[in-house]
Design a protein around this nucleic acid. Structure first.
Lengths: 216, 216
DNA sequence: AATTTTGTTGACCGGTTGGTCAGGTTGTGG
DNA sequence: CCACAACCTGACCAACCGGTCAACAAAATT
């Protein structure tokens, strides 16, 4: 048996497939339940029911409720950080910040449950991911602040406090996920349409970009 | 006994005083515990300990955990609505929206626990205050949107979607309460100083006001 | 085909939680 | 000073929750 065949077998083996699929189903159910009930309000039984598995099976893949929760939070954090790719290779603030806002709005739309879990985690004092905040997030923030400061120094945008600007972007974009229920209620109880999402994105972009002196 | 004497006695009676004071202490403790642990994670025992009362005493004043929670949520909702007073008798958007942002930032600073409870309630689908969203909040929103629209029609500000503008103000201001822990962590673990709160308020105000074409 | 590893699950358990209640204490009106 | 109402609380309970485990099934390995 050569190396390729072995790798192929490992990746395609039924065992591996079962594990991957079950973990996926469990994490998806957990994300939803944690988002809708909070960590304390969520029960392993509820997650199991939503995943269509016996509760004992959950504990086979994830030792404890906290382990499962940690994985859910880490998943959304990864997505969150990736949105920064828009930021990096941008020529100036109009392009960079505009693309970042669009990326974050897209995340709010496609991962509303993950966003809520993250918000909930932070609101409760980040008991699980405090170390991420102090290391990865801090470095990430410092890096983007430096980019914004360079744009300001180059006269490409108004001298707005870069940190506060990032907070404003985070707040406005995540609002559409975290407070989605309120927004839906004020929208006659109906989810936002494609057009409404585009309008919201455009409004956020235009107000912020004009607010930092990039648009006229 | 005349009417005045009776009212005076009722308001000053020790019984009334005891009830009012105990309810106040319990609500204050409950707000903090619900904010830090969520509804599901909060326990009556924890609230009782923080209030310095036996658990059974809590159930004397508030029949169920849900009753207590409902009162906490209603309290913050009242404060929330009152911030709109800044909006109403304003000559134009610079004054009205500026004052509203300041009022909401002040609420985020002075009632961080209440803000978090409100956010948590909405994030979880507003199980307790859904009717408020559909009645009071909707009317409130429609009213302010009309005011903003009049300003736009009068040429006092750029034609920004009034609804999205309100959402942006809610999001940016409440962010400082709901994500206060994250902001504090990124601030070297220290709470914002007076000066930093003023800076944050000014940045939010200037970016939004410039963003809607009110500032140059 | 035998053996080992991995996956599956109903039944069970100790600990915690929201809520109750009986019996006591304190304040109030007559 | 008496009777009634409001307030207080230790002890208790049924329900539920996270987690365990033994016994079994299925797949992989030899």
């Amino acid at each position: 048996m050569n190396e390729n065949a072995r790798i192929s077998r490992i990746q395609k083996g039924k065992r591996t497939e079962i594990r991957r699929e079950n973990e996926r189903v469990i994490l998806e159910a957990a994300e939803k339940v944690f988002a809708e009930a909070g960590f304390g309000g969520a029960t392993m039984q509820l997650i199991a029911d939503m995943a269509g598995l016996p509760k004992a099976n959950l504990h086979y893949y994830f030792a404890t409720k906290e382990d499962l929760y940690r994985r859910v939070v880490q998943n959304i954090f990864e997505i969150w950080l990736h949105a920064a790719d828009s930021f990096d290779n941008a020529a100036g603030p109009a392009e960079g910040i505009g693309a970042y806002i669009e990326a974050k709005m897209e995340i709010s739309r496609r991962h509303p449950f993950g966003s809520k879990v993250w918000a909930s985690e932070v609101m409760h004092g980040a008991p699980v991911i405090q170390d991420y905040l102090e290391t990865t997030l801090r470095e990430w923030t410092d890096g983007r602040m430096a980019v914004i400061q360079r744009w300001i120094d180059a006269g490409l945008m108004a001298p707005v406090n870069p940190r506060q600007l990032l907070y404003m972007i985070w707040a406005t974009t995540q609002h559409y996920a975290d407070f989605g229920h309120q927004i839906e209620t004020l929208n006659a109880g109906k989810p936002l349409t494609d057009r409404q999402w585009r309008d919201a994105t455009e409004t956020v972009k235009s107000v912020i970009l004009r607010g930092i002196g990039v648009l006229v």
